[in-house]
Design a protein around this nucleic acid. Structure first.
Length: 485
RNA sequence: GGCGCGGUACCCAAGUGGUUAAGGGAGAGGUCUGCAAAACCUUUAUGCGGCGGUUCGAAUCCGCCCCGCGCCUCCA
C-alpha cells in the first residue's frame, strides 16, 4: 500500500488511482528564462523518484510536465538578449533537457509548452467567462475569486486579510479585488502577444497548467506535484480555474517538495544564493553525487545544501561501487549462504515498504547499506557463496532503478577498471590527464612485475605516478584494480 | 500576525507508544596488507530543543515555551 502526504488534506493518505493500474500525474516544470538551479532540480528529481516508484509498483504512467515559455522573465530576458521569445526559450529548454539527462531524470510521457496551447487557454478563459467567473478590465481578463467560495482550501490561507492596495502589481490595479488573478494579460508595447477572440495579449501564468492538465489528463486526475512555493498562489489558482470550469475535483493528491536551502536560506534566483548544475559539475562534482544528495533527504524535509554534503554523498556512492565491484570480480566458493540468501530475498520488500511510506528515501538507503554490510562481513569471513552473488547484484540494481547513481552492470566497462558513467559525465573520459587505458594497463603490469620481485620502491613509485595522474590503484586478492579519482 | 515544515550523536539522517534509538559520512583504536587502498570489527546519544502532563511504559500522544526555515508578492 502506497501512502502519500496530501497537502490538500494535510495528512497521510493511502494512494488509490482513479483508474486501476494507471496513474495520471502532472508536475510543474521549469520557466525557461535561465538555467535552472539545483533547488529547482530537487523538485524535478522528486518527481522522477515518484515516477520510478509508481512504475516499479506496477502502475502505467501518464505524466505531463509543463514548460513555461512565456512570462515576464522570459520576455524580459529575450528582449535583453535581442532574440525572439522562441529563439530564447528554445535554448533554455535544450539546456534543461541536457541537465535532466545528466541527472538521469526520466522524461515525462508528455512535455507541454505553454505557447503551443494558446488556443486551448483562450477557449478555457472564454468558458470561464460564460460561467461568470471572469471580468475584463483594460484589455485584461481576471478570475473573480468571490465567485469561487472554496478558494484557499489547498493553502489554508485566510485571504480575507488581503486588502486592496496592499501589494499590487502596477499593471493589475484595475482588479476588482486584489485576490483576483489575471487569466489574460493585455499587451504592452514591444511585447509578444497573440491575436485572439479575447483581444490581443498573452496568458497569465496559472491558466496554462489548468488547461494542459485538463487536455492531456482529463478534468480529474490523480497526482499533481511541485515545489512547496507553488502551493500559493499557483496551485490554489489552478484549482479555482479548473474546478470552476468542470465542477469536478481537479486533483486528488497534491504532493509538494520542500525547499533546498543554502546557508539556512532558501535557494533562489532573486537572492542570488544559487548553484546551477553546470556550476557544480565545473567544480568537479559528479552528477551522481548531486543526485544522491538530493535524493537522500526525504522530499518533505528542507535540505540544506553544502559542499560537505556532496562529499559525503560521493563517499557513500563509492562504498556502493566498491561493493558492486567486489561482487562482480571475486570468485566465491560454490553453494549458497542461507543467511545472505534470506537477506537478499527480503530486500525488495523492505525497499518497497520504505518507498511506499511517502517515498522514504532515507529509509530506502538504510535498507541497502544494511545488506551491503552483511554481505561484506560474510565475504570477509569467507562465508559468502557463489549463489549469493547474483541475488546481491540484483538488489543493487533494484535499488538503483530508483536512485540511479551506480554504474550499469552491463559488463561493458573495462574488466580492471571500475570507472563509472558518473566519472565520464563529470570529468570527461580517459584522455583528460593524458593517460589512456592502454597506458594505464602498461603501468600496472610494470608494477605487478616489480612487486613480484619485491621491488617495492619501484612499485610505490609507479603507484605515486599514477596517483598524480588521478589513477588510484588497489591490490586485491584477485589482482590489481584501478579507478579514476 | 496567519498558515505550514522542522529541531535525534562531530555532520547528514531514519524512527510517530513497548526488547540493546536504523543507516551514511567523519574521527579514534584494531584485523588484513610489503606499505597502502578496499573491507571487516570495536568505538562516538542512559538520551532524542526545554519544561510540565497522560501512561505500567514516550523521541513517539497532550499542553506551554524556545529556536530555525518556508509560504502569505514572481519563485521548484
Amino acid at each position: 500500500m502506497i501512502s502519500f502526504y496530501n497537502t490538500l488534506s494535510g495528512r497521510m493518505e493511502e494512494f488509490v488511482p482513479l483508474e486501476k493500474g494507471r496513474v495520471r500525474l502532472y508536475t510543474c516544470g521549469p520557466t525557461v528564462y535561465d538555467y535552472a538551479h539545483i533547488g529547482n532540480y530537487r523538485s524535478f528529481l522528486f518527481s522522477d523518484i515518484l515516477r520510478r516508484h509508481l512504475r516499479r509498483s506496477g502502475f502505467e504512467l501518464l505524466h505531463v510536465m509543463n514548460i513555461t515559455d512565456v512570462d515576464d522573465k522570459t520576455i524580459r530576458n529575450a528582449a535583453a538578449a535581442g532574440q525572439t521569445l522562441t529563439e530564447y526559450t528554445d535554448r533554455f529548454i535544450e539546456a534543461f533537457f541536457e541537465d535532466s539527462r545528466k541527472l538521469r531524470l526520466e522524461k515525462p510521457e508528455k512535455v507541454a509548452r505553454a505557447t503551443e496551447h494558446i488556443p486551448d487557454m483562450v477557449q478555457a478563459i472564454r468558458q470561464l467567462g460564460e460561467k461568470g467567473f471572469t471580468y475584463s478590465s483594460e484589455g485584461s481578463v481576471y478570475f473573480r475569486i468571490a465567485n469561487f467560495p472554496q478558494y484557499g482550501k489547498l493553502s489554508k490561507i485566510d485571504i480575507s486579510g488581503m486588502r486592496p492596495g496592499a501589494r499590487m502589481d502596477r499593471d493589475e490595479y484595475e482588479k476588482a479585488d486584489v485576490r483576483d488573478f489575471v487569466l489574460w494579460k493585455a499587451p504592452k508595447p514591444g511585447e509578444p502577444s497573440w491575436e485572439t477572440e479575447l483581444g490581443p495579449g498573452r496568458p497569465g501564468w496559472h491558466i496554462e497548467c489548468s488547461v494542459m492538465a485538463n487536455k492531456y489528463l482529463g478534468e480529474s486526475f490523480d497526482i499533481h506535484a511541485g515545489g512547496a512555493d507553488l502551493i500559493f498562489p499557483h496551485h490554489e489558482n489552478e484549482i479555482a480555474q479548473s474546478e470552476a470550469l468542470s465542477g469536478k475535483t481537479f486533483v486528488r493528491y497534491w504532493l509538494h517538495c520542500e525547499h533546498l536551502l543554502v546557508d539556512g536560506q532558501k535557494m533562489s534566483k532573486s537572492t542570488g544564493n544559487y548553484f546551477t548544475l553546470r556550476d557544480l559539475l565545473q567544480q568537479g562534482h559528479t552528477a551522481e553525487s548531486i543526485r544522491y544528495l538530493l535524493a537522500s533527504v526525504p522530499y518533505r524535509k528542507q535540505l540544506n545544501f553544502t559542499v560537505g554534503g556532496l562529499r559525503q554523498a560521493a563517499q557513500s556512492i563509492e562504498r556502493l561501487k566498491n561493493f558492486q565491484f567486489r561482487l562482480s570480480h571475486t570468485s566465491f566458493p560454490e553453494g549458497a549462504n542461507a543467511e545472505i540468501a534470506a537477506k537478499t530475498t527480503a530486500f525488495p520488500d523492505l525497499l518497497r515498504k520504505a518507498m511506499d511510506d511517502d517515498l522514504n528515501t532515507a529509509q530506502a538507503m538504510g535498507v541497502l547499506f544494511e545488506l551491503v554490510r552483511a554481505a561484506n562481513t560474510a565475504i570477509d569471513r569467507g562465508e559468502f557463496r557463489s549463489e549469493n552473488t547474483q541475488p546481491a547484484l540484483d538488489c543493487l540494481s533494484h535499488w538503483d532503478e530508483i536512485f540511479e547513481v551506480l554504474p550499469k552492470q552491463t559488463g561493458d566497462h573495462p574488466a580492471q577498471s571500475f570507472a563509472t558513467a558518473g566519472q565520464e559525465s563529470a570529468q570527461a573520459s580517459a584522455g583528460d590527464d593524458g593517460m589512456g587505458p592502454a597506458e594505464i594497463e602498461a603501468k600496472l603490469q610494470e608494477r605487478t612485475a616489480a612487486r613480484r620481485q619485491r621491488n617495492f620502491a619501484l612499485a610505490d613509485r609507479i603507484r605515486d605516478e599514477l596517483s598524480a595522474a588521478g589513477i588510484l590503484i588497489e591490490d586485491t586478492k584477485d589482482g590489481m584494480r584501478w579507478k579514476r579519482k
